[in-house]
């Protein structure tokens, strides 16, 4: 088995460095880097730039490790779903064992190095996040409950808290508000995706809400979570990480997001099929901008603060 890579018959399928990088889910990593950086910079006090850079890098590596472990565990269903069939393991370029070893090694390395560069609390939180994504979400929840996205969303919500703890060594309400923003945003974001990628989750037997409770119920869930998210996002504007710029942006974005959710909720499958899920796809794209903009203005408020402009 181990000798397969040394024969000349498998040249074309041999993994390149880019395939191992793909195991780390670079798109998820970029979101983790961004939100962790916002958490770090929005926190009171200052961190030496070298320590901040190294710490965020180790958080990114930890996120990559959990991505590799997720791909190792989910290789069987990834092969079935159109969206994931070209990932390195189902495509046959990387052996499952390689992904497991890479994930475990990078997880250990990232946690240990974060403890050295920042503090033990941040390292413990990173370790818990990796465990939560790889074990609680991937192994326990994803294939067993339609609430997989809701609870699993917590894993993606931890990075700004880790960033905050890197800077301060402790937790605060503001850090948990950033956590809550991502936590509440995740379900409508993924359920919108599930609405127009229906066949994928059906075929793989993943109990997405669209499969277990039907599409009408999913649309209702989207609007309920969006209303709660909008209240939370606008409310955050009145805390220490908010400010006039944040509040103005949040009001506009949440009005748009609510409008999108209402449109998704009002539609039925006939209308959605007729126009190729145009409204659902637009809502999904808006959700990406929504999160990016909220964290962007939190960062902006923090950047303006030294000049006496940011915050209240």
């Amino acid at each position: 088995m181990a000798d397969v890579g040394y024969t000349s018959q498998v040249h074309e399928e041999e993994a390149q460095l880019g395939d191992y990088f793909a195991l780390l889910k670079p798109r998820v990593m970029s979101l983790v880097v961004f939100t962790a950086l916002v958490g770090l910079l929005a926190a009171p006090g200052s961190v030496h730039p070298v320590i901040a850079f190294a710490s965020i890098l180790f958080v990114a590596i930890g996120a990559g490790a959990s991505g590799a472990l997720n791909m190792w565990w989910d290789a069987d269903i990834d092969a079935i779903m159109r969206r994931t069939a070209k990932r390195p393991i189902p495509a046959g370029r990387v052996q499952p064992g390689e992904a497991l070893h890479l994930g475990v090694a990078l997880a250990g390395l990232s946690v240990m190095m974060l403890a050295l560069s920042a503090n033990l609390m941040a390292a413990a939180l990173l370790a818990f996040t990796i465990f939560f994504y790889a074990v609680v979400y991937s192994m326990w929840l994803k294939r067993s409950t339609p609430q997989n996205i809701v609870i699993g969303g917590a894993a993606g919500a931890f990075p700004p808290v880790i960033g905050w703890v890197i800077a301060t060594g402790s937790f605060s309400v503001e850090a948990w508000l950033m956590f809550a923003l991502i936590f509440m945003w995740t379900p409508p974001h993924f359920w919108a995706l599930a609405l127009f990628m229906k066949a994928d989750y059906d075929d793989a037997g993943v109990p997405m809400l669209t499969v277990t409770h039907g599409r009408k119920s999913t649309r209702t869930h989207i609007i309920v979570y969006t209303v709660l998210l909008a209240a939370l996002a606008v409310g955050t504007g009145f805390t220490a990480i908010g400010g006039p710029v944040y509040l103005g942006t949040a009001l506009v974005l949440n009005a748009l997001f609510l409008k999108g959710a209402v449109q998704v909720w009002q539609r039925d499958e006939t209308a959605a099929d007729a126009d190729g899920y145009r409204v659902e796809k637009r809502f999904f794209r808006l959700s990406l901008w929504y999160l990016f903009a909220h964290f962007g203005v939190i960062l902006l408020e923090a950047a303006l603060r030294p000049f006496g402009l940011g915050g209240w």
Binding site: A15, Q16, V50, I51, A54, L57, L116, S117
Partner: peptide, 20 residues
């Protein structure tokens, strides 16, 4: 390509630990 990439990453890691 793989070996050069791994070598560069290890070198980067050493520099990072030194800077830290």
């Amino acid at each position: 390509g793989r070996n050069v990439g791994v070598g560069l990453m290890l070198a980067g890691f050493v520099i990072l630990v030194l800077a830290l």
